[in-house]
């Protein structure tokens, strides 16, 4: 089927060309259309091999990513009763969504969590990565300490999150310690089931997603650049600001995308750590699902998806991560 496409113009791009830059395909190429029986020639053609190489991935992505999303888009226009969903094409779900002030509050809340969590994960992640990359001299120690960072990943997200609850509770370890030190007289109520505890759990769970990509790009910075900067008289702070930070941008951006998308898509952390009292978009969706309102959940999911895509689109305007990969 695709034959026609690359027969019409011998210089059309294959996906592989796109992936590896278009330069190669710009070369004049022998068209296989002249002798269709010659399999060898067809197989040698860049475009054919290109399409063949990407087709398994494309098929997987199509089946497991594109199709489900298309399905969600379709369902978002359906109608629901308490126990069934009815195929339809109507905008009621979107109308209700955009017509409710709760939607806006919840989206603002979602962004608030994402931004605050990003600030903390970035500060902590950058510091940790910087320490590992530039202060630890031996590779063995770097690897050892890096692995140490991943130890929390040996237990599940949920366990790590829930273990905060007895720690932060009204009669928890944090409060009783502070009281016994005489720092406070009354237990601090805002430690648990508050925005504080939600953000704390997010930062705890997702900081490593910031550390890894930043550490990775830092390790690839040519050390001689830093020496050159020092020789040229730059102070430590200047090197950090003018050399390391710009060169680490792709790592920061990758980490940012991880953290922002994870936080914006979360529903469980917010439910558990806020004691069900705060809501983000994920909770709105999960509430709808649990009450069998699939069309309404789909509509919310589509709006969330678009929002996240726009956010990432904006982020990618700042840094061209493809250049660095």
């Amino acid at each position: 089927m695709k034959t026609s496409t690359w027969c019409v113009s011998g210089t059309s791009l294959s996906p592989l060309d796109l992936a590896f830059g278009a330069r190669r395909s710009a070369r004049p190429r022998h068209s296989p259309c002249g002798d269709p029986d010659n399999m060898q020639k067809i197989l040698k053609n860049n475009a054919v091999t290109g399409w063949m190489m990407v087709s398994p991935l494309a098929a997987v992505l199509f089946l497991f990513l594109v199709l489900p999303i298309v399905m969600i888009v379709v369902v978002s226009f359906w109608r629901a009763t308490e126990f069934s969903i009815i195929p339809a094409f109507e905008f009621d779900n979107y109308e209700f969504l955009f017509g409710s002030s709760v939607t806006y509050t919840v989206f603002i809340n979602t962004f608030k969590y994402a931004i605050i969590t990003w600030i903390f994960t970035f500060l902590i992640g950058f510091t940790v990565a910087y320490y590992l990359a530039f202060h630890i001299r031996s590779l063995t120690w770097q690897i050892a300490l890096f692995l140490l960072c991943t130890i929390p990943f040996w237990t599940s997200n949920i366990i790590r999150m829930i273990s905060w609850i007895p720690f932060l509770g009204r009669n928890g370890i944090a409060n009783s310690t502070l009281i016994s030190w005489g720092v406070i007289d009354e237990p601090l109520e805002w430690l648990l089931f508050s925005d504080f505890s939600v953000v704390l759990a997010f930062v705890h769970i997702y900081t490593l997603f910031m550390v890894v990509p930043i550490f990775n790009t830092m390790m690839r910075i040519d050390k001689s650049l830093i020496e050159a900067a020092r020789d040229a008289g730059a102070s430590g702070a200047q090197i950090l600001w003018n050399v390391i930070l710009p060169l680490t941008k792709p790592g920061i951006m990758i980490g940012t995308i991880f953290v922002v998308t994870l936080v914006m898509g979360d529903f469980f952390t917010v439910r558990i750590m806020s004691g069900s009292q705060s809501a983000n978009v994920g909770r709105l969706i999960s509430n709808d699902i649990s009450l069998l309102q699939y069309p309404s959940a789909s509509a919310t999911a589509i709006v969330l998806l678009v929002t996240v895509l726009i956010t990432i689109g904006i982020l990618l305007r700042f840094v061209d991560i493809r250049k660095e990969l």
């Binding site: 007895p166 009204r170 009669n171 806020s274 004691g275 069900s276 009292q277």
Partner: peptide, 24 residues
């Protein structure tokens, strides 16, 4: 709720046990 009457809401009943037992 907005006046802070509620400490938390629970959904599964083990959550209600924890809330009560811990004195939250």
């Amino acid at each position: 709720k907005q006046n802070g009457q509620f400490r938390a809401f629970w959904k599964s009943f083990d959550e209600s046990i924890n809330l009560m037992a811990s004195g939250e």
